[in-house]
């Protein structure tokens, strides 16, 4: 059997205890939420911590609760299955609910958490492999080596953000509550990312994502998520697109957001494209025309690379198709856009 590296496991029951355990070791420690990303990655020797701080006993990190101001607090340890099946979330934030439903397969969603999906390591076909496999190539710059096999001679790691829920949370303007050695901080999810496939986040791995906060939706907010993948289950996205549309009382779009994933190190917001939707009205020609323009612009803004499996040119060809379909689904209150 593919082995995990040797480590010790700590089971804290509070956030503060977890932070302390993270720091009270000279070597590397890692937080373990659902284990669906870290455990395979450790089996691949992508991470070899001496200590694993398991978060399953921290009550504060569970639960999905509506706050007094109408916002929603989702504990980082809420499972993707919790998120996908939560009725209020589904109504208020359809893109998130749909994205959570399309992560991997049923068991992974029962185990994997929303916090874990946000903090998911970037993925690459040259990286998510065993130590032996990677050794046959002399490794790559993301782990154990210096080269890039995606872009020969490339100097920057282009491993792809592959978390389905990240673009949904981006369109929703989610805020992330982190705990670290100095206390708690909140940051907009848009500020989390950096364009580096080796570590695509601006927080260190020693900081703990405690909860995800979603602002109260507008009166007529709609959304959808579209996911390209080979199989109907299990697979990571080959391309993902989340949509948010805010409609006024007349049914005219006054705000919109689009965000794509499975391209490069960061989830990729499509602001210019989203702007084209404002002032248009679903059901009328203005919207239909804007959808075509948005899809075309999305294809210009999204450039899949041969980082994750699959034909990247084909993935590129699907950008406009999935963008268009997801926009229509969002407007119609449908979705997710998925081939099964």
């Amino acid at each position: 059997m593919l082995r995990l590296p040797k480590f010790e496991v700590k089971n804290p029951s509070t956030v503060e205890e977890a932070i302390a355990m993270m720091h009270a070791i000279d070597g590397e420690a890692r937080f373990l939420a659902g284990g669906t990303d870290l455990n395979p990655n450790m089996k691949h020797r992508l991470f070899t911590p001496e200590r694993v701080v398991a978060l399953g006993g921290i009550e504060e990190m569970f639960g999905i609760t509506q706050q007094e101001d109408g916002s929603m607090r989702i504990g980082a340890m809420a499972t993707l299955a919790n998120v996908a099946s939560h009725a209020e979330l589904g109504l208020a934030y359809p893109a998130l609910s749909q994205a959570a439903l399309l992560v991997s397969g049923p068991q992974l969603r029962n185990m994997g958490t929303l916090g874990g999906n946000v903090m998911l390591d970037t993925r690459c076909q040259w990286y998510n492999q065993t130590y032996f496999w990677r050794s046959a190539l002399g490794f790559c710059m993301k782990k154990d080596g210096t080269k890039c096999h995606v872009i020969e001679g490339g100097s920057k790691c282009v491993a792809a953000a592959s978390n389905d829920t990240a673009p949904a949370l981006m369109t929703l303007g989610a805020e992330l509550e982190f705990a670290n050695a100095t206390g708690r901080t909140r940051m907009p999810i848009a500020d989390l990312w950096q364009a580096d496939g080796i570590w695509n986040k601006k927080v260190a791995h020693t900081e703990l994502l405690v909860a995800i906060h979603l602002p109260k939706p507008s009166a007529d907010q709609r959304g959808a998520y579209g996911k390209l993948r080979d199989r109907g289950s299990i697979d990571f996205p080959l391309f993902g697109i989340a949509i948010r549309l805010d409609l006024d009382a007349q049914g005219t779009i006054f705000d919109a957001a689009l965000c794509a994933v499975a391209l490069q190190a960061r989830p990729w917001p499509l602001k210019k494209a989203a702007a084209l939707l404002c002032g248009t009205k679903p059901g009328e020609e203005s919207f239909t025309e804007a959808v075509e323009q948005v899809a075309a612009l999305a294809a210009k803004q999204c450039r899949p690379m041969p980082n994750i499996p699959g034909d990247h040119e084909y993935r590129h060809a699907m950008v406009s198709v999935y963008t268009k379909r997801a926009l229509l689904a969002a407007a119609n209150g449908d979705g997710p856009v998925h081939h099964v």
Binding site: M1, V9, L32, G35, T36, N39, P40, V52, A54, P106, Q107, L108, N110, M111
Partner: peptide
């Protein structure tokens, strides 16, 4: 349903 191979 949970995967025992990914559960410590």
């Amino acid at each position: 349903p949970t995967l025992a191979c990914l559960s410590l």
